[in-house]
Design a protein around this nucleic acid. Structure first.
Lengths: 154, 154
DNA sequence: TTGATAGGGCACCGAAGTGGTACTATTATT
DNA sequence: AATAATAGTACCACTTCGGTGCCCTATCAA
C-alpha cells in the first residue's frame, strides 16, 4: 500500500517537536517528554528515535539529563531521509532500482514490458520526497487547531 | 511501506499489453492470453482484470471470444486511477484526508502538530500520481521529464 | 558510591494486509 | 449441448507492521 508506516508518522511528530525545541537553544529533549506530549507509547517512540539517531538525523545524549536533539537544521532534512531511516529504502516495485530480481517472486521479470518506465517513475518519486523538507512539515501553526474533538481515540 | 503492491504492477503490465493491442483494432484480449505472455498466474490476473473492469478502466466481454480491452485511451488513464482500482484510495497516513480518525489507532490524533502539513503533502502526492498517465508507462516515449508535482501546497 | 534517569540492542508476539487459489455462476460462441 | 470466457465470493499462507519487554550501558546528583 502507498502509505507511510505509523512509525514514520511518529518520527515526523517527534522531529517536529525537536525542531521547535531547537530554536530555544535548550538541552536535549528526552523521549519521555515527547511521548507524554503526544500520548505516544514510550517504548515505541524510543525505538523510533534510536533509528533516527542511527541515521544521524538526531543526536543522542545518554545519562540522567540526556535525550535527543536535531543533528541537522530542519531545512536540510528531507522526507526521503526520514523514510529511509525508519522504513528502509523506498521501493516503488521490486524492480525499481534496476538490480537483478532474485527471489522476490515477481513472475514477470525478464518479460516485463514496463520495467524501464517504472524505474524512471521511481526516480521521480524519490525526487518528490527528496524535495520535501522537514521545515515545510513542521508548520508554524498552532498545535491545537485540529478537527472536531473526536471522541474515543486511543 | 511506500510500495506499489505486486497486483498493481501486474495491472500495469496487463494495461500496457491492452494498450498495445488497442492500436491494432482487434477484438478483446483474454486474460489467458495475457497471463501466458508474461508468465502470470492466471487466476490472479483474472482477479486483477476484474477490479480494473469494475473501475471502468477496461471493458470486459463475456463468452467464448470474450476478453478485455482498454475502455479509455491510454493518455487519459492516470496511475492514480489504476492504484485506486487495485489498492483502494491512496492514504499517505490515516489522517491525510481530514476525516475524523476513529478506530485507526493513531495515538497522536488531536495533539498532532503536523496534521495540516501532512494533508497538504498528501494532496501533492495525489497530484503526482494523477499526472502520470498510462501512455508514459507503456514505453515508446520517455516519462522522465516535466510534470513537476504542483507545489501549490497552501 | 550509589541510585535514578536516560539511551542502546535485541528479541518477541498479535494483528492486519498481501499474494495467490478455489469454487460456483453467468454469458456468449460454435 | 459443449466450450471458453468473465463475475462473484470466499479462503488461506505468508510477510510486515505496531507495540512490548528485557537487559545492558552511560551520565548526573546526592
Amino acid at each position: 500500500m502507498l502509505t507511510l508506516t505509523r512509525k514514520t508518522d511518529y518520527a515526523l511528530v517527534a522531529l517536529s517537536h525537536l525542531a521547535h525545541r531547537r530554536r530555544e537553544e535548550t538541552g536535549p529533549t528526552s523521549a519521555r517528554t515527547i511521548a507524554e506530549a503526544y500520548h505516544l507509547p514510550l517504548p515505541l517512540l524510543m525505538n523510533i528515535l534510536k533509528e533516527l539517531a542511527q541515521a544521524k538525523l538526531v543526536s543522542s545524549t545518554r545519562g540522567a539529563t540526556g535525550g535527543y536533539a536535531l543533528a541537522v537544521a530542519p531545512e536540510r532534512i528531507s522526507l526521503l531521509e526520514i523514510i529511509n531511516a525508519i522504513e528502509g529504502p523506498v521501493k516503488l516495485t521490486s524492480c525499481c532500482d534496476g538490480l537483478p530480481i532474485v527471489g522476490q517472486g515477481c513472475h514477470v521479470a525478464e518479460t516485463c514490458p514496463i520495467q524501464g518506465s517504472i524505474q524512471k517513475l521511481h526516480k521521480r518519486l524519490l525526487g518528490f520526497f527528496n524535495g520535501v523538507m522537514l521545515d515545510e512539515l513542521i508548520g508554524e501553526q498552532s498545535c491545537c487547531q485540529s478537527v472536531e474533538p473526536t471522541s474515543s481515540v486511543s
